[in-house]
Design a protein around this nucleic acid. Structure first.
Lengths: 199, 199, 199, 199
DNA sequence: AATGAATGAGATTTCATTCAT
DNA sequence: CATGAATGAAATCTCATTCAT
């Protein structure tokens, strides 16, 4: 009698372990062995739930995004327009250890995505969701008269998203130059500019 | 007399090959074997010109930066202040294939730098040069009254650099969303804002 | 259920193979490949049971010593003092093929120990056990009045141990000059001198 | 016009370099590159003067023995019999850095000799010379009445030579246990026993 | 379903040797 | 003669993957 196992639960368990390993030791240290050990299973178990390592890594990326979305859900509750946007973008900055690790994971996937179509595809899809959310909040904010109307909102969206990722990378690479406090202040100022330029 | 080989030329040859491999197949595919094959030599030849693989990779990063600097030198000739800054930042965007490859290489090194102290150190040193140059041009522009005086110029520097890297990543990852033309326009607008906000 | 393998048994299997390779082809020929082949496994299997090559080599040295101790245990049963000492030292001479191989292995490790701290440490620890045993037996023999009292027993210990190793090397290098029979006779005479010098 | 070079001089130069490398860094560090560098020549030059690396190593062993003989020649001048023997054997102990290195070199060759017929052959020939010399001095000492006549002098020869090598190894492996002073004292006592046992 | 033993390819690095100049 | 560039085999170690149990 084979033991009945909830496939998706077990997958999730392994993917969580993968995420933890990547966050803790970097994407290169995430070997199948390290993942299996972290998950508390043997090496061989991975075979049953994943096609191959790419499958695992892709799922780990997806999970990381879901984590971020979960955290955001709480923070955005009750907020709309510019206030929500501010919360959203600040949450995407590596302002504490947890988010620094998340950014590190994301950056690790960037380079991999450029040579792996599957990863690229996944990354693109999930990035689009974020873009759409930012764009929507900007639209709401504009309608509410919270921000200036001179600029194209799609352009603003791209600028803000690029700024968040650029600042994140620079914080991780050059922490002396760009500490967490300054990071926050720089992004805040950019958001302030959205308002001030309307006045 | 033996075949005399210019050491630095041969090093460059190998480093160029490394760069090509990274650009074409990604930084993970840049094994010593692949590099040697790409350079048209046997594996063992690397020994003559490099201490170890780190030496090769570091040199590849350095070479890429040198390429950029060389190209810039020509473009900046005769320019100062805001005009020079505009040229400099635009040149850092992946607006054509060559620069797209350069950006891809750079991004590949970001994640590696986070776990390799030697790479991190090199990256930091060279990034500081760029930062200093941008800051200087901003200072000159300010003195010449080309830009508004309200903002802290160090902050502006960081914002511009983050924007350039963020836009570069997004262009490479999401080319449909963020084509070369739009990239250029977005950065141009940001520079225009430096002026307009003074009016 | 997976194939269950007794870890220490498999380690022993590999270490025995290592020992055979060293005995047959010399310590320099004991590459990980040669060891794996001799053990009848693939290269990669060594990973499961050993941290690295040093671990294997050290275990091989340790195993050899354990072999010797096992054999001695039987021979020394019921013996004390000078008789036990005689048995002990004779057993350490390469008087048959088995012990010749053991001596050869030991000699191979001597030179390695001089440049490998880990090996050196292991060798020193195990040599000290032997020294202590010899010294103890000498003490017992002296108390029993079996040997002369004129000499410092620590010095005698060192002389006997040096003689055993020196004779062993010379037998292996110059078998024509120093056959097994003569080896035995020479060491026996040395032990006899311990007694006769008391008369 | 080819430059005229004294072949044996150039060989000697390289072999001296080899010896220096082995003495300084151990026999395993004596790579052809290291040897060539030490000799002040390029790698390729070795080809002209030696058949292969074995040829070099063998010559280095031979040279080391010649060095020892040279040093002895001076020390033995004017001495005969037991006094000469004492000088000879003491000179063979690793009582200072130079001789410790020489002993290290010798020990490194022991294990190699066991799997290399050519090395073995060379070692045997040169060991025989030493044995013959010791035996001769013992004979002279006996004729002069300097030592007891009870023992077979061939046996004494082997015992003394084994003791010297055994003590040398133990000094190098266990210097804490067997310092230079004690080494000298132990061998001296053994020589004294040759006399005292006659009384 | 789960184990973990085993595989074998491949990565980096080292080295004796060859050879065109 | 001498150089040193170049080779290619081999050594150690790592890792994703397979598979018998």
């Amino acid at each position: 009698m084979p033991k009945i196992v909830n496939h998706s639960e077990r997958r999730e368990e392994v993917v969580e372990a993968t995420r933890r390993v990547i966050l803790r030791e970097g994407i290169e240290a995430a070997t199948t062995r390290a993942i299996a050990r972290e998950a508390g299973y043997s090496n061989g178990v991975l075979t049953h739930y994943f096609a191959d390592k790419d499958d695992i890594m892709l799922s780990a990326l997806h999970l990381s995004h879901r984590h971020i979305v979960e955290r955001l859900r709480g923070k955005l509750a009750g907020l709309t327009g510019l206030a929500a946007l501010r919360e959203l973008l600040l949450d995407n900055l590596p302002l504490d250890d947890e988010r620094a690790e998340e950014s590190g994971l994301e950056i690790g996937f960037w380079s991999r995505s450029m040579t792996s179509p599957a990863l690229h595809q996944a990354q693109r899809a999930e990035a689009e969701e974020l873009r759409y959310l930012v764009r929507s909040l900007l639209g709401t904010a504009a309608e509410a008269g919270e921000i200036a109307t001179g600029e194209d909102l799609d352009d603003v969206t791209e600028r803000l998203l690029a700024l968040v990722d650029g600042l994140s990378v620079h914080h991780l690479l050059y922490p002396d130059r760009l500490g967490a406090g300054r990071l926050e202040r720089l992004l805040g100022a950019e958001l302030d500019r959205l308002q001030s330029s309307s006045s």
